[in-house]
């Protein structure tokens, strides 16, 4: 069954359609990679799914529930979706542990002790156990992004949205974050990730969607979309990526 189903999404900014009749279906345990040029609407799509932006048309269903209905409480929906941003967005005034336990304690009303046990377990699993009491500005970019992923996971989300989580990182730090995403896939997490890492999309995604001007104009298994694209726009995009040495 589809975990996430977007139909006919439209989002305008200043009279300009950033998402335009966009359809996207994500099955449970599936990993979908969104690729496309800068400005094609990848981040906007992820923000809409997380109800951080108000839609101008279309519907979004999560687990069969229409979450784009204005009567739905967005806070309740967001508890089931984990989101990770390009710029980490950790809370600078809270320690790593407090960053991670904030939502479990205040949203899920779990006790501090229980939340901290869970957070330390998650941190240990990604090799950051020693950083629990550090503040974000003492961490490397890769470490910060891994903490941001752990923070989203602490809510036990049904779906993870990852928005170019490696773009702000130095090349030698990209690997540690990608490893973490690989492990998440192995655990069966459903994910939608916007990315410029074509090699990684090919390896980890079950399906690749190419976005252009707010529409999915080509989608399918990675070998097909990245290997034998049928649309001229996709070919053009991939050619540029190859020229830039990123595939």
């Amino acid at each position: 069954m589809a975990l996430l189903r977007c139909r006919g999404l439209r989002k305008e900014f200043g009279g300009h359609a950033v998402l335009d009749h966009l359809d996207l279906t994500v099955a449970e345990h599936q990993v979908v990679a969104l690729i496309g040029a800068s400005g094609s609407g990848k981040s906007t799509l992820l923000r809409c799914v997380n109800l951080l932006e108000e839609l101008d048309d279309g519907t979004i269903e999560l687990d069969g529930e229409d979450i784009s209905d204005p009567r739905v409480d967005p806070d309740r929906v967001r508890r089931r979706i984990g989101m990770v941003f390009q710029a980490y967005n950790l809370f600078p005034h809270l320690s790593v542990l407090d960053n991670i336990t904030l939502a479990p304690r205040h949203v899920h009303r779990r006790g501090r002790a229980a939340a901290e046990v869970q957070a330390r377990e998650l941190l240990d699993r990604v090799g950051l156990g020693a950083k629990a009491d550090a503040y974000p500005d003492r961490l490397s970019g890769g470490q910060q992004q891994r903490v941001a992923i752990v923070r989203a996971l602490a809510n036990s989300p049904r779906l993870m949205l990852l928005d170019e989580v490696t773009s702000a990182l130095d090349p030698e730090l990209v690997g540690e974050v990608l490893t973490m995403i690989r492990d998440l896939k192995a655990d069966g997490m459903t994910m939608v990730l916007a990315t410029h890492e074509m090699g990684f999309a090919r390896e980890v995604a079950d399906e690749v969607c190419f976005l252009d001007a707010g529409r999915v104009i080509e989608s399918g298994p990675p070998e097909q979309v990245l290997g034998e694209p049928t649309q001229p726009r996709t070919r053009q995009f991939l050619r540029r990526i190859i020229e830039a040495g990123r595939l």
Binding site: D75, R78, R79, F91, L102, V107
Partner: peptide, 25 residues
């Protein structure tokens, strides 16, 4: 505003976001 987006995406309400994320900073 990215701090607000991060807090809201975790499911914190507006009031919780103010109390735990915005006002302390």
């Amino acid at each position: 505003s990215s701090q607000l987006a991060a807090a809201r995406s975790l499911g914190l309400t507006y009031r919780q976001t103010m109390r735990h994320v915005v006002l302390p900073q």
